[in-house]
Amino acid sequence: MIKKIVTLLLLLIFSYLLIMKVKLNYELEKANNRLHDYNSQNIKLSYGNISYAEIGKGEVILSCHGLFGGYDQGIENLKSLSKYMRIIAPSRFGYLESDVKGKGTPKDQSKAYVELLDKLGIDKVYVMGASAGGTSAIRFALDYPEMCKGLILYCSAMPETKKSENVNLKQGPAEILVNNYMMYITSPFFKATMGMEQEVIKTMLPIDLRKLGVKIDSEITNPDMSLNFNDYKIENLQIPTLILQAKDDKIVDYNKTLAAAGRFPNLTLKIFENGGHMIKGHGEEIDKYVLEFINSNSHK
């Protein structure tokens, strides 16, 4: 009886893996076709290539995507605002054909943003950082305040309130998961582990074009505000800041966001009761808050 049960379980597992493989191949084809729809461009900067996409006209928002992102995620995060704003969405280091400057630190990334904006003839922007992209957005605001009209942090990584003696140097997914197949077969568990729907996997594919970026985020970007606490002088920020956060976010701790909020001198804080890491279901409210924030500060 035990042998029959084990055999049945193995058969079920094998069938599941086979079905997921077939479904993955279909989704990969769709994902690769979807990337072409963004009409992305490549620009040669001093250190190498950067890929980016843009949409809309008006005030410029530099959109810094999160983990497993790229120019596609950067556009999607703000697409509904493109009728009012010009969205510039670069792929950060290691994502979708973007090369790496130096060691790939947030400081290096903010320098790359400056080069890109110079190439595009843009003097000043609002910068929006989503999730892991928040670190380089904060770094950009600190290092180039003359180029930054305002800082928007959307479910973003947050600065520490005090220097930590023990910093986790690996803040990201296990390396074994960072490939198309392994991430796809674990996607049914996204809701339980990260509070995100399984469908999110479709926006992460193809993972092989984002793998280096995930590694850089996990080992360099995400630990940076803790490792270099003294370099993140948040209290010196004079530009206006808008923070958007959901209480039930399983990726960014709501309590940490509240604690960090006290460090921003010119802050507008918008908290949502639910919505998870992507503040799902609150798109219209988010657009309203972002538009109000930009409109109230653009004349200054």
Rank of each mutant, 00 (worst) to 15 (best):
I2A: 10
I2D: 09
V6Y: 12
F14Y: 14
L17N: 13
K21R: 09
K23W: 12
N25V: 07
A31P: 02
L35R: 13
Y38R: 04
Q41A: 09
L45A: 03
Y47H: 07
Y52A: 01
V60P: 00
I61T: 00
S63P: 03
Q73N: 15
L78H: 02
K79G: 09
K79M: 09
K79L: 12
S80W: 05
L81C: 02
K83R: 12
Y84K: 14
M85L: 10
R86M: 03
S91I: 00
G94N: 07
P106L: 10
Q109L: 05
Q109V: 09
S110Q: 08
A112N: 07
V114Y: 07
K119E: 04
V125F: 00
A130Q: 14
G134T: 07
A141S: 09
K149H: 02
C155H: 14
S164V: 10
V167E: 11
N168R: 15
A174I: 07
L177H: 05
V178A: 01
V178M: 11
M182Y: 12
M183G: 13
P188N: 06
T193D: 15
E197D: 13
E197F: 14
E199L: 11
I201G: 05
I201K: 15
T203R: 13
M204H: 13
R210A: 03
V214C: 05
I216P: 08
S218I: 08
E219C: 07
E219P: 10
P223Y: 11
S226F: 07
K233G: 04
I234C: 07
I234E: 12
N236C: 04
L237P: 09
T241W: 01
L242Q: 02
L242R: 03
K250L: 15
N255P: 04
K256Y: 08
G262F: 01
F264R: 08
T268W: 00
F272A: 00
M278F: 09
K280S: 13
E285D: 15
I286M: 03
D287N: 11
V290G: 00
S298V: 06
S298N: 11
K300F: 03
